[in-house]
Nucleic acid binder design. Structure first.
Lengths: 140, 140
DNA sequence: CCAACTGTCCTACTGTCACATGACAGTTGA
DNA sequence: TCAACTGTCATGTGACAGTAGGACAGTTGG
């Protein structure tokens, strides 16, 4: 797992970090049960204050992505969601609406939009499958 | 055009407003050349400071969505983008990636994701078509 | 011309983010 | 046991974003 902070992006550092952990989890770079880098070393590596990393982890715990135990560390939880399926669909719909509106302002057609949606989904799924294979090799 | 601000969302008011104008443009509720509500009355209606509305409009002008002339007002520009098509696709890809990752954490399948993407695109296109019809009726 | 409208600029208050630091509590292995 | 690690909490500080109110400048119609 390699994290990179963009200090010029304007986006809060702790949110950048939290998003990257979520991306790592979705792409299979981080597996359920695995431990995340501990706060102090990661803060030093990223040249960031330890409270900033702690805030990112607190955010992830609040979202149910990780589990943190004082004295032990932070661990990725198995994917789960407390919401009903229709509520989850609604949540995703809101995010997708942003993309739809952006597509309109970028003058991209329906087929461009749908093709790209499929392409990006498959790119992540492919990365996850790739990680699975690497796991096999390590065990084999 | 009806705007609504959510003061509890944590999202800056001026960005909420800018997004709603962009949504109105994409859905056809606001057409190219039409004037936007002027700053002061809109600020009063939304119970918001004038400068907050002004900042939203400034943001939209920076993005090329509207044109503003001192003393006259703000007007919706015809849709356009200064970027090449591959750059536009790349911009949309980044936004879609967020949706893909969210779909993973919400445990929604590939077909759920793609179906929803199509559904949301068509919902907006339908709204736009509806507005076109209303226009016809007004003229007819 | 001037009143009433349009957007714009300047300054100030407030809250958030990030940093630095110190102190504390749970866990683990030598 | 104790040293070295883990996360947690409270404080103060500086920078900046978001919001707000007053003053200013361009446009228009009576």
């Amino acid at each position: 797992m390699r994290f990179a902070i963009n200090f010029k992006s304007g986006k809060p550092v702790y949110l950048q970090l939290a998003d990257q952990v979520k991306t790592a989890a979705a792409s299979g770079a981080l597996r359920a049960g695995e431990s995340l880098p501990s706060i102090r070393p990661l803060a030093e590596e990223l040249r960031v204050n330890r409270n900033t990393v702690a805030k990112a982890y607190a955010e992830l715990e609040a979202q149910g992505v990780i589990e943190t135990r004082a004295g032990k560390g932070c661990f990725l939880r198995t994917a789960q969601s407390p919401l009903r399926k229709d509520a989850r669909r609604k949540a995703l719909a809101e995010t997708l609406d942003e993309s739809v509106i952006q597509a309109h302002h970028l003058l991209l057609s329906r087929s461009d939009f749908l093709r790209l949606a499929q392409e990006r989904y498959d790119a992540l799924a492919h990365a996850r499958a790739q990680r699975e294979l690497e796991e096999e090799h390590e065990r084999g």
